[in-house]
Design a protein around this nucleic acid. Structure first.
Ligand SMILES: [Zn+2]
Ligand SMILES: [Zn+2]
Ligand SMILES: [Zn+2]
Ligand SMILES: [Zn+2]
Lengths: 142, 142
DNA sequence: ATTTGACCTTATAGTAACTATAATGTTTAG
DNA sequence: CTAAACATTATAGTTACTATAAGGTCAAAT
C-alpha cells in the first residue's frame, strides 16, 4: 500500500514511465485513493520488476505484454520466452556484424581522409569520399 | 530537369523520404512546374546522394545538415567530418561491447532455462529468472 | 494563518528518421 | 472515356520513453 513515488523507488522505474506503462495497458489501472492518487502493493512491484528486467534483456514492450498476458491466462510463457531469447541472440549477431562492417568503412574513410587536403570545392577531400563512396583501392589522386 | 520519381530512382531514395527531407529543410524547396510538380536537376542528385551515403555511414540528419550548411557557406567541412567519423568509430566500439554483454546474459539465461521445467507459478522456470535476474552462479534449485 | 516543499494529477508535445494512409489532381495511353 | 501511372497535401503511426505545463493535495515550518 503505497503511492507511485514509492513504487518508482522500489522497482527502479520512473513515475513517468509507470504512468506510461499504465496508459498502454502494460500495467493494470491501480485503484485510487480519495484524492485520486494511485495506490499500489507488492504484486505491482513484482510485475514492474519483471518488466524492467525484461527491458534490460532488450525484450520489446510488445514481447513483455505477450508474456504477461500468457501468465494472466495461467499459461506458462516459458517456451515463448526461450524462443524470443534464442531469436534475440541471433539478431545480436547480425547487428554486431553490421556494426563491424560499418566501423570498417568508417575506419577506412578516416585513414583515407588523413591523406587528403581540405578544399572547399569538395572534390578531393574526405567529403567527396562520402558522396561518391569509398574507392575499392585508394586512388593515387594523380 | 525531372520530377521527383526520377530523382528517387537516380539517388535511390524514396519519394516520401525526399519530401520529408524537404520538409525538414535538408533539401531546398525546388521550383515547381505549372501543375505544382517539383522539378529537380543534377545538383539535386548530387546532394541527395551525399545524404544517402552519409546516412549509410550512420551520420544523423542533424550531422548531415551541419555539413551541408558549412558547404553552403563555402567553408570546408572536412575537419568536422573527420571528427564525427572518429567519434562514431568510438561509439560503435561501445555499442558492440554493450551488445556482447547483452548477448552473454541472454546466452546464460538460455542455458539455465534449458535445465528448468515449465511451471505456471513462475517460480522455477526461465520466467522467474527474468524477474529476479540471473544468479551469479546457477542455484542447484534444491 | 500562510507559505513552502514534496508529493500527486492530467494533457500534450517532443525525440529519430522515416513509412503509411487517405483523399485528390494531372498526364498519357489504350 | 477511362484507366494507369504519375504527382500533390495533410495526417498519423512507429518505439519507448522524456519533458513540459498547469494544476491539486498534504504536512510541516514560519
Ligand atoms: Zn516460465
Ligand atoms: Zn579524388
Ligand atoms: Zn572536405
Ligand atoms: Zn529457482
Amino acid at each position: 500500500m503505497f503511492l507511485i513515488g514509492k513504487l518508482s523507488q522500489f522497482a527502479g522505474v520512473s513515475t513517468q514511465t509507470i504512468r506510461y506503462y499504465e496508459r498502454i495497458a502494460l500495467l493494470p489501472a491501480p485503484r485510487r485513493s480519495e484524492n485520486g492518487y494511485r495506490i499500489y502493493d507488492d504484486t505491482d512491484i513484482d510485475r514492474l520488476r519483471f518488466i524492467k528486467q525484461a527491458r534490460q534483456l532488450n525484450f520489446s514492450l510488445d514481447d513483455i505484454a505477450e508474456i504477461l498476458a500468457l501468465r494472466e491466462r495461467n499459461q506458462a510463457p516459458c517456451s515463448v520466452v526461450m524462443n524470443k531469447v534464442a531469436q534475440q541472440i541471433e539478431e545480436i549477431n547480425s547487428r554486431i556484424a553490421e556494426l563491424i562492417h560499418l566501423q570498417n568503412e568508417l575506419k577506412r574513410l578516416y585513414q583515407v581522409g588523413l591523406t587528403m587536403p581540405e578544399d572547399i570545392e569538395m572534390k578531393h577531400c574526405v567529403c567527396h569520399l562520402i558522396k561518391d563512396g569509398l574507392p575499392k583501392e585508394v586512388d593515387a589522386h594523380a
